[in-house]
C-alpha cells in the first residue's frame, strides 16, 4: 500500500496540463514514475476509478482526475459504487472502512 505516491501522481496530473498530457500519452510509463504497487499502477493506468477510490484516493483528487479522463458526474459516482462492490471496503486514507458491513 503506497497511497501517498498514488495520490501525488494524481495531484500532479490534475494541476498541470503538461503532466496530464504525459499521462494520456503513456499511462503505464507515467505510473512507473511513482513508487506504486502493481495493483495501484494498474488502477492508475487504466484508469480504474472505482479501484482508485477503494485504494484510498481522496475524492477531491479523484473527482478532477475522473473528469479529465472523461467521466461524466453520474459515471464517476457510479464507478466508485462499482469499485466498492467489486473490491470491498476502502482500504486506506480518509475513507478507510467505508463500505464495510455494519
Amino acid at each position: 500500500m503506497s497511497l501517498y505516491p498514488l495520490q501525488k501522481a494524481i495531484y500532479e496530473a490534475n494541476r498541470s496540463a503538461a503532466v496530464m498530457s504525459k499521462y494520456r500519452e503513456n499511462p503505464a510509463a507515467f505510473a512507473a514514475g511513482y513508487a506504486l504497487t502493481g495493483e495501484e499502477a494498474d488502477a492508475l493506468r487504466k484508469p480504474d476509478i472505482g479501484l482508485l477510490y477503494v485504494l484510498g484516493v481522496n475524492g477531491q483528487l479523484l473527482m478532477y482526475f475522473a473528469a479529465a479522463c472523461g467521466y461524466e458526474w453520474n459515471a464517476y459516482i457510479g464507478a466508485m459504487k462499482q469499485g466498492l462492490a467489486a473490491h470491498g471496503p476502502v482500504r486506506a486514507g480518509l475513507y478507510a472502512t467505508v463500505g464495510e458491513a455494519r
Partner: peptide, 28 residues
Amino acid sequence: EHFANFFMNNMPSFAIGLAESYEGPIED
C-alpha cells in the same frame, strides 16, 4: 482548497496569498 495548490508533502494549516494576480479555475 481542494489539493489545487497544497498537498501532503507540505500542507500548511493556514496560508495567505501574496501576489498581484491569481489564475482560476484550475479545473476544466
